[in-house]
Amino acid sequence: MEVNIIKTRIKSIYTPSRIPRVDWTVNQYVGCAFACSYCYAKFLTKWKDYGKWGSWVEVKVNAPELARKRVKGSVVMSTVSDPYQPIEAKLKLTRRVLQYMDKRNELSILTKSPLVTRDIDLFRLFDRIEVGLTINGFRGREKRLFEPLTPVQEARINALKELKEAGLKTYVFVSPIIPEVTDISSIVEETRDFADYYFFEVLNLRASGREFQRLLQEGYPEIYEILTDDGKFGKFVEKLRREIKELGVKTEGIETHKRGWELVKV
């Protein structure tokens, strides 16, 4: 699919965060060519009339020079895009932002792309940095329906391994967790040697959008019922909590969105 590139200039690259325990977010791109069908950032199409989600990417061309600003606290890259989506291989905007960032910043990077290993040399310059890979185990039918344009799971796991072997702090973001689809135990067993910790997030059905909700309702009616029935959802989360506890991995908890944002301790 051809992606429309929109070049923009901005006044600041650091945005105050609404995410718990995160002070700032950095998004040098807005929009994402991975076009995951469940993506929570699709809400941006309400204000950015460029077309269907995944068909366009905003490129903040002056982001590198703005990244020089010194900010205090934790910084996350990125929240409404993937910093290593396909166009990054050519534009190298993420790399240039990293080059200009104050290396004293506490930085957390999250991606679905093995391209992230390209910038290991820059990661090593930061005083405090962690790099995460989203690994959700989608294969076969679910991969084709939920995120057909993303790198395969094996490539992400190999990238995680390379980052860890380079001496970096790493984590696995297991998201979205979908009942009866996401195999938590399998993901942990495949990655536990390369991850310092895990963060688990159950699918935010409301944020996934009406189109994805219909996809689940029609193609996975039993799963849709679990996600929409309070009793069944509660039992699912409790079972998930027990499973994660038995796996014995370091984690901050399970993020759920049944009644707003909630972090369930393991």
Rank of each mutant, 00 (worst) to 15 (best):
L115E: 09
R124M: 05
R68V: 03
V97S: 07
Y84I: 12
N136Q: 10
I135R: 01
R96F: 00
S113W: 06
I120S: 02
G132A: 12
L107Y: 04
L93E: 11
M77I: 10
L133R: 11
N105D: 06
K69N: 06
T79I: 10
K72R: 13
D121W: 10
T79H: 12
P83M: 08
S81A: 01
T117R: 06
I109M: 02
R124L: 15
R104H: 09
Q85V: 13
M77T: 00
F138Q: 13
D119R: 10
A63W: 05
F138L: 14
P83Q: 09
R104M: 08
K92Y: 09
K69F: 02
D121A: 03
N105R: 09
L91I: 04
D121K: 12
L110W: 06
R141G: 09
V97K: 06
T79F: 07
D127P: 14
L122W: 03
F138W: 13
G132N: 12
I135P: 03
T111A: 04
F123K: 13
V116Q: 04
L107R: 05
E88L: 09
S81H: 00
R124I: 15
R128I: 06
L125H: 14
D119P: 08
M101D: 06
N136L: 00
N105Q: 13
T94W: 01
L66H: 12
L93M: 12
P86G: 04
L110M: 13
V116N: 03
L115D: 00
F138D: 05
